[in-house]
């Protein structure tokens, strides 16, 4: 096959993986810290995309529109955390999962109500192409990859170098103990949840120009995000990054080989990995059920 195709395929896969990572990182962090599976992250993803689209249409700006998308997603996730999750953190994981799924479905319904069913095209901030190994690739995709890596670095820095991060790592091990040291863990939860919501919103806003913004977009990425989380292992940030790029590549390169199989291949990979390691590559079997 053409080498050009491969280079752009890899870039395409990395950029897809970056979006998956931004979405899955929040999901994974929320699981690690609060032991919830926050399916509503997919709602913040859609909302981020729609708000970015709307601001873009209204003002013509692109990057600021994306920031607005992320902020709006963060704001909604804050409301949901205060009104819903704050009351149910103590419940078992299935309970929070069902509730968050309700929020997702209701939110997608609300989006359909506001923006309708028609997919909306969103302006791309950078149209330029740059030559990479002699192949022209879109600069925007490279920026998306850069953003994801920067976010990964930022989260790692917060976790390992700040006192808040220390508290989060400690609380992942044992929340009660952290609270016993006088740390307001509920604020930690809120902060993490809103942070996750903003990342999801950012993922949606960044993804907007690469696909069409439509009400189903949250549900369309569901399998990939789940695969990323599952392959990487719930609660592991490093695992999430590795598996996000892995899934991105499998989708992208897989479609070069045989298009219809592109979406199935990572699923098959996931099943194989689960057969081998039921809690994913980096997931801990020790986590409370």
């Amino acid at each position: 096959m053409d080498a050009n195709l491969w280079v752009s395929g890899v870039v395409y896969g990395l950029s897809m993986g970056s979006i998956f990572f931004l979405l899955a990182a929040g999901l994974s962090l929320c699981f690690g810290l609060m032991r919830i599976i926050s399916l509503d992250q997919l709602l913040y993803y859609s909302l981020g995309a729609y708000v970015a689209y709307q601001v873009n249409v209204a003002t013509g700006l692109t990057w600021p529109a994306m920031v607005c998308g992320a902020l709006a997603a963060g704001a909604l996730s804050w409301v949901v955390e205060r009104w819903v999750f704050d009351r149910i953190y103590a419940r078992e994981i299935t309970f929070t999962m069902i509730t968050s799924f309700g929020i997702l479905v209701a939110g997608v319904g609300a989006i359909k109500y506001v923006w309708g069913l028609v997919p909306r095209p969103m302006g791309i901030p950078v149209e330029a192409q740059v030559a990479l190994l002699g192949v022209n690739v879109p600069v925007y995709r490279i920026i998306v990859i850069g953003v994801a890596l920067a976010v990964y670095g930022l989260i790692q820095w917060v976790l390992n170098r700040t006192i808040v991060g220390t508290a989060i790592r400690a609380a992942v091990e044992d929340v009660d103990q952290v609270e016993g040291l006088g740390v307001d863990v509920y604020r930690l939860f809120t902060g993490t949840f809103v942070g996750a919501g903003m990342l999801s919103g950012l993922a949606g806003a960044l993804h907007g120009p690469l696909v069409m913004v439509d009400p189903q977009m949250g549900l369309e990425v569901v399998p990939f995000v789940f695969m990323v989380v599952i392959i990487g292992g719930l609660g592991s940030l490093k695992g999430t990054l590795v598996s996000a790029f892995l899934v991105g590549q499998v989708v992208s390169l897989g479609s070069l080989i045989y298009a219809p199989l592109a979406q199935m291949a990572p699923f098959a990979a996931m099943l194989l990995i689960l057969l081998w390691k039921p809690t994913g590559l980096y997931g801990s079997a020790l986590l409370r059920r």
């Binding site: 006192i163 220390t166 508290a167 790592r169 400690a170 091990e173 044992d174 009660d176 103990q177 952290v178 016993g180 040291l181 006088g182 740390v183 307001d184």
Partner: peptide, 22 residues
């Protein structure tokens, strides 16, 4: 607490720092 539960993944320094943060 009982059972000597310190944070296994944190260094002694981090354990102490967390304790004095609040």
């Amino acid at each position: 607490q009982q059972d000597k539960r310190v944070f296994a993944d944190l260094t002694v320094r981090e354990n102490l720092r967390l304790a004095s943060s609040a």
